[in-house]
């Protein structure tokens, strides 16, 4: 018995060390953002702020372009969310309710397209968006983000809809609803929870996306990740302000993920274990 206690203690110790390695960078980021700006550049840096200051956060006011980039990110993520949900809800319903050749082909395609280098799609997508006049517009970037998130949204939604009993939409049909009626009056209200989880997923995918935003936006609709990445070269080393931007930028993501941990894990392992 003592041996297994010892094993267990070693295991716990190892897990704790790895935990520290994982939590430390986040803790350091938050701690640096709360130091007065001049302390942020101290050599060697201290782990905890000597004095707590929100100056790094108020300093963001000096960079209107960066502030605008957060606005752009929110608009683009909301647009991409709307596009994805509008397209994915009926498609997921079609796939979940009828096992057709088209549905199966789609699910396969959605997987295969994930294997193609994003940049290979990026170049022609840039050309297409350019001829449609959508370069450097919120809608264009949102559309590009939707190409990534729609397949994901369909995978997620189809699994939610499969769990809704068929009797429910059949009852609605008997009561004289059309197929569309059944979808809008019965299925969507019942699946509202699943749809909102998917919507948040899509929002976060767009919020974090880097490559398409880089290719398709220049001055006008630059998103937050691009603005933060370019911050150093544009404004010199303002370590303190950068950390406060990074905290503000990651906060919504971490908050949502904590709330939806189970769903996110389910979404990630989908296709991995079954396939």
């Amino acid at each position: 018995m003592t041996a297994s206690y010892l094993q267990r203690a070693t295991l716990l110790l190892l897990v704790a060390i790895v935990l520290l390695i994982y939590v430390f960078p986040y803790a350091f980021l938050v701690s640096t953002s709360l130091k007065p700006p001049q302390d942020a550049l101290e050599i060697p840096p201290t782990l905890l702020p000597q004095t707590i200051s929100i100056e790094n956060y108020t300093n963001i006011g000096q960079f209107p372009a960066v502030q605008r980039s957060f606005g752009n990110s929110i608009i683009i993520a909301l647009l991409s969310m709307a596009i994805s949900i509008i397209l994915a809800v009926p498609a997921a319903y079609g796939i979940a309710r009828y096992s057709t050749w088209l549905g199966k082909a789609f699910l396969m395609l959605a997987l295969v397209t994930r294997l193609i280098p994003t940049v290979s799609i990026g170049i022609p997508l840039f050309a297409i968006m350019r001829s449609l006049g959508l370069i450097d517009t919120h809608f264009g970037v949102a559309l590009a983000h939707s190409t990534i998130s729609v397949p994901l949204a369909i995978w997620l939604l189809a699994s939610f809809m499969e769990s809704i009993p068929r009797e429910l939409d059949e009852a609605a049909r008997v009561d004289g609803c059309s197929r569309f009626g059944a979808l809008f009056r019965v299925i969507i209200p019942v699946a509202a929870g699943g749809i909102s989880v998917t919507a948040i997923f899509v929002f976060l995918a767009s919020w974090n996306e880097f490559l398409f935003s880089l290719l398709l936006s220049s001055v006008g609709v630059k998103t937050a990740p691009i603005a933060i990445a370019e911050f150093k070269s544009q404004y010199g080393i303002q370590w303190g302000t950068m950390t406060s931007l990074a905290v503000l930028y990651s906060l919504p993501v971490i908050a949502f993920s904590l709330l939806m941990q189970k769903r996110i894990v389910a979404g990630m392992t989908m296709g991995a274990v079954k396939g």
Binding site: Y22, P25, Y26, W207, N208, F210, S257
Partner: peptide, 15 residues
């Protein structure tokens, strides 16, 4: 362990 997966690379890169 999962936090880096959902956080954007931009924030991670900074640290």
């Amino acid at each position: 362990y999962f936090m880096p997966v959902v956080t954007s690379l931009v924030a991670i890169a900074l640290v």
